[in-house]
């Protein structure tokens, strides 16, 4: 018999880890991106031309990683009882 309370608590821990590292990733990548771009914005005029490409890849990177993490969470939730993940 599966202990559902334990499973839900452990699933929450997995979700907590994912949210924590994703939060840190969003903070660090946007901070680094903002500091470098804002430093160079006025001094290097070419930055304005290529800025959209940088922004596109930043959004792709963070977006795909977020979708990937959500998928991992959903997969764990879907299979946790079948494969007895938290035994």
């Amino acid at each position: 018999m599966v202990n559902k309370t334990k499973y839900h608590n452990d699933l929450k821990k997995d979700a907590g880890i994912i949210v924590l590292v994703l939060g840190l990733l969003f903070f660090s990548e946007t901070f680094v991106f903002y500091r470098i771009m804002s430093t160079l914005w006025d001094a290097v005029p070419e930055v304005r031309i290529i800025f959209p490409v940088y922004l596109l890849f930043l959004m792709l990177l963070l977006g795909i990683e977020t979708i990937g993490c959500i998928t991992v969470y959903k997969s764990i939730k879907e299979h946790m009882y079948d494969f007895k993940y938290y035994e």
Binding site: I17, I18, V21, L22, L24, L25, S28, E29, L61, E65, G68, C69, V72
Partner: peptide, 9 residues
Amino acid sequence: QAGMITLLL
């Protein structure tokens, strides 16, 4: 995924 995020960080 955790490893990939660590490297991005």
